Amino acid sequence: MTDTTPRAAEMLLAVRRGAPRLAGLGDAAPRNMTEAFAVQRAVLSSLGARIGGWKCSAPPGQDPSGAMLDAAGLRASPATWTVPADGRIGIETEIAFRLGRPLPARAMPYTREEVLEAVDTAFPVIEMVVSRYQDPSKVSPMEAMADCIAHAGLILGADVPGWRGMDLPGLVVKQSYGAEVQVEKRGGNPSGDPVVPLLWLANALPHHGLALEAGQVMTTGSCTGLIWVAPGQRVTGGFGGFGEVTVDLV
Rank of each mutant, 00 (worst) to 15 (best):
T5P: 01
P6R: 03
A9L: 03
A9E: 03
A9Y: 03
M11N: 04
M11Q: 14
L12H: 02
L13S: 07
V15Q: 06
R16K: 13
R21N: 14
L22N: 05
L25M: 11
A28W: 01
A28Y: 00
A38N: 03
S46A: 12
G53Y: 02
W54Q: 02
P59H: 07
P64T: 01
P64M: 01
L69D: 02
T80N: 14
V83M: 12
G90A: 00
E92H: 04
E92C: 05
A96N: 12
F97M: 07
E113T: 15
V119F: 01
V125P: 00
V125A: 06
S131K: 02
D135R: 10
P141F: 01
M142V: 03
C148Q: 11
C148T: 13
V160W: 07
V160M: 07
M166Y: 07
V173A: 12
Q175E: 10
G178L: 03
V181R: 10
G188T: 08
V195T: 15
V196N: 08
W200T: 03
N203S: 11
L205V: 04
G209F: 10
G209D: 11
E213T: 15
G215P: 00
V217M: 11
V217Q: 13
M218K: 11
T219A: 13
P231I: 05
G232T: 08
R234S: 15
G237M: 01
G238W: 01
E244A: 14
T246I: 08
D248A: 13
L249I: 06
